Simulated scan of single mutants.
Amino acid sequence: MTTVATDTGVGPLLRGWREQRRLSQLELALRADSSARHISFVETGRSRPSEEMILRLAEHLDVPMRERNTLLLAAGYAPRYAESTLDEPRLETLREGIEQLLAGYDPYPALVVDGTYTVVAANRGIGMLMAGLPEHLLTPPLNAMRITLHPEGLAPRILNLREWRGHLLAQMRRQIGLARSESLRALYEEVAGYPLPAGPGGEADREDPQPGPYFALPMRIEHDGRVLSFVSSIATFNTPMDVTVAELAIETFLPADPGTVAYLRSLKE
């Protein structure tokens, strides 16, 4: 994804973000140390906001970094935040840190995705789960949502697919609401439209035969004749100053039962 200029002025864009966040002009003004009158003038184009004001409003509206650049461009200012590629020299330290983190988490699965769930890095634990998937799903660029929910992907192996699929789709809907990303919306429509794979006995959905008392919703997946259970956590970078870095997410999968722990530890012996 790239940041592009827009013919729409900054005022309507800011109004759109404010309305999406369900804030009144007065509420936004109080948060941004401004006045409702000034916010109104900005939104209607009667006043051109300063670069500082745009960034302050964007901060209080929780506007994603990529869209902050769009706001600045719409107001006639230069973008504030760079958008690097991960192979650039300036991100070498970041790449090394990510690689060390993923390697240190092994044999537990872990991966890094961008804002549209394209996999930018993964460890051997993820490779273990993807073993045996068809070539068309493993051809770069890999997409974590496609791999998980495609009927030829991991979906047929996930015992509690209905619950896990619902969790992933809800996660994507929340992100679409925050970021208003058209590419993310297109991905959501694609994966939400995948048919549920046939389960045992030709059933369209699979029920987990051993739900168990978990502390968080697990993904229960068949692997090599056994059932592995994982709960996931997602981490992002604090105070990023680069669009690419702001959109990275590190997802780690923690074993949810003793059997999964024992099996994964046996892989390192």
Score class of each variant (00 low, 15 high):
92 E>S: 12
176 I>N: 05
51 E>H: 13
64 P>N: 07
154 L>S: 14
82 A>L: 10
17 W>H: 02
175 Q>N: 13
269 E>T: 15
225 G>L: 03
256 A>C: 10
126 I>E: 07
18 R>K: 03
83 E>V: 07
61 L>Q: 10
31 R>V: 11
60 H>D: 06
182 E>L: 02
7 D>N: 09
228 L>F: 14
138 L>H: 02
192 A>Q: 08
20 Q>W: 07
74 A>R: 14
18 R>L: 00
149 L>V: 13
219 M>P: 12
89 P>D: 03
266 S>M: 00
54 I>W: 08
135 E>T: 06
241 M>C: 13
182 E>V: 05
176 I>Q: 08
142 L>A: 02
171 Q>V: 08
78 A>T: 15
197 P>Y: 05
245 V>W: 01
187 L>H: 14
43 E>Q: 07
143 N>E: 01
72 L>A: 14
266 S>K: 12
26 L>I: 02
173 R>I: 05
196 L>N: 14
210 Q>A: 11
167 H>I: 08
108 Y>A: 13
158 I>C: 04
245 V>H: 02
163 E>G: 01
184 L>I: 08
69 N>M: 05
263 Y>T: 12
181 S>M: 02
177 G>Y: 06
1 M>D: 15
209 P>I: 04
58 A>V: 07
84 S>W: 03
222 E>V: 10
140 P>N: 00
55 L>A: 11
12 P>T: 01
212 G>L: 05
37 R>Y: 03
242 D>M: 00
251 E>I: 04
216 A>E: 14
101 L>R: 01
124 R>H: 14
135 E>Y: 04
191 V>W: 10
170 A>L: 09
239 T>K: 12
49 P>H: 06
261 V>H: 09
229 S>C: 12
17 W>Y: 02
20 Q>I: 09
213 P>I: 03
127 G>T: 14
246 A>R: 15
105 Y>V: 11
235 A>C: 09
87 D>N: 13
25 Q>H: 11
95 R>L: 04
255 P>F: 03
28 L>I: 06
49 P>E: 04
114 D>H: 03
15 R>K: 14
175 Q>A: 11
245 V>R: 06
8 T>N: 08
181 S>L: 03
76 G>N: 12
128 M>T: 15
252 T>N: 05
214 Y>D: 15
68 R>I: 09
189 E>L: 08
123 N>I: 02
48 R>L: 09
163 E>D: 13
165 R>Y: 02
165 R>K: 02
268 K>P: 00
45 G>D: 12
22 R>E: 11
232 S>C: 03
268 K>A: 10
199 G>S: 07
140 P>T: 01
221 I>P: 04
266 S>H: 10
29 A>C: 12
269 E>P: 07
70 T>V: 10
197 P>D: 10
234 I>F: 05
258 P>C: 05
1 M>Q: 15
122 A>C: 08
183 S>M: 06
193 G>Q: 09
94 L>R: 09
191 V>R: 05
101 L>Q: 07
146 R>I: 09
141 P>Y: 06
189 E>Q: 12
3 T>H: 10
111 L>H: 06
67 E>Q: 15
66 R>S: 13
241 M>H: 15
51 E>R: 15
141 P>T: 00
211 P>Y: 04
140 P>M: 03
61 L>D: 14
268 K>F: 05
29 A>N: 11
